[in-house]
């Protein structure tokens, strides 16, 4: 018993820097990064996000899921001696010595005001809500900026062609970080265009399955009411019995 207690202590000890902030004593390797131009010495194995926290920033903007899903942590940086302006997700990118960076706290862009049920399922939905897609010069800057490695230019071209299925496929992993839109010389807000197209494809291009409609109709008729009534009223003993007797759907 006392053994497991010390074990829990050991675990929290080992994760201390992750759960409570890094203690300098634990650090062996250091790099220097420049946060908005000011240099900080930070542990070499941190992400841009945790390095900023180490340096003393309490993140309010540019930090959400911390795991590469929400797109809050868009960051642009230059490596020492490089002309290229790179972009990354702060929560997914390890710091490098000499990196000079700034986070993008917000990217202004208005999403379309529309009622999906009232839109027509063809390319005109894009020219109606985002006519600027026609301005794309195919420079591919958006693709270079995308931290999810999506072919952003290609999905914008799919929108121009009215090819909803390709657009949905190509833009699916977009986390709406905003980096592409900030770099686009044609001022296109790619992620909004992509989202409009995906929703249109979801509703019109990939319709509701028949088996779902059937189930909804059964529900409407109240077909399962009595069996559910019985389950809600059942004793724990009875439920255990029924649970044990369930037959697993065959694996085909």
């Amino acid at each position: 018993m006392s053994e497991s207690k010390t074990m829990m202590e050991k675990i929290s000890e080992s994760t201390r820097s992750l759960t409570t902030g890094v203690d300098t004593r634990d650090v062996e390797h250091w790099v220097t990064i420049y946060i908005m131009g000011r240099g900080y010495s930070v542990p070499a194995d941190l992400t841009i996000m945790t390095a900023m926290e180490f340096a003393g920033y309490k993140l309010i903007r540019s930090c959400g899921c911390r795991q590469g899903f929400c797109g809050a942590c868009a960051t642009i940086f230059r490596r020492e001696g490089q002309y290229k302006l790179e972009s990354a997700l702060a929560c997914q990118t390890r710091v490098e010595d000499g990196m000079c960076l700034v986070q993008i706290p917000f990217s202004p862009a208005e999403a379309a005001y529309y009622d999906i049920a009232a839109e027509s399922y063809d390319y005109s939905v894009f020219s109606k809500h985002y006519p600027e897609v026609a301005r794309c010069v195919s420079c591919n800057t958006c693709t270079k900026a995308c931290p999810q490695d999506l072919e952003v230019m290609d999905y914008i071209q799919s929108a121009i062609k009215g090819d909803f299925e390709s657009l949905a496929e190509q833009s699916f992993d977009c986390i709406q970080c905003g980096l592409c839109a900030l770099r686009c010389p044609a001022e296109i807000v790619q992620y909004n265009v992509g989202h409009l197209g995906r929703r249109m494809f979801g509703r019109y291009g990939s319709p509701e399955p028949e088996h779902l409609k059937t189930r909804l109709a059964e529900m409407e008729r109240g077909e399962f009411s009595s069996v559910l009534d019985a389950l809600v009223g059942a004793s724990t003993e009875k439920l255990k019995e029924l649970y044990a007797a369930r037959v697993r759907e065959s694996d085909e």
Partner: peptide, 25 residues
């Protein structure tokens, strides 16, 4: 009881679920 309703709602809003060639989930 509401689960199928939620699926229907999401379909109408345009969520792209994984589907088979025959349109089933």
């Amino acid at each position: 009881e509401d689960a199928p309703l939620v699926m229907h709602w999401l379909e109408e809003l345009g969520v792209v679920f994984d589907k088979r060639d025959n349109g089933d989930y």
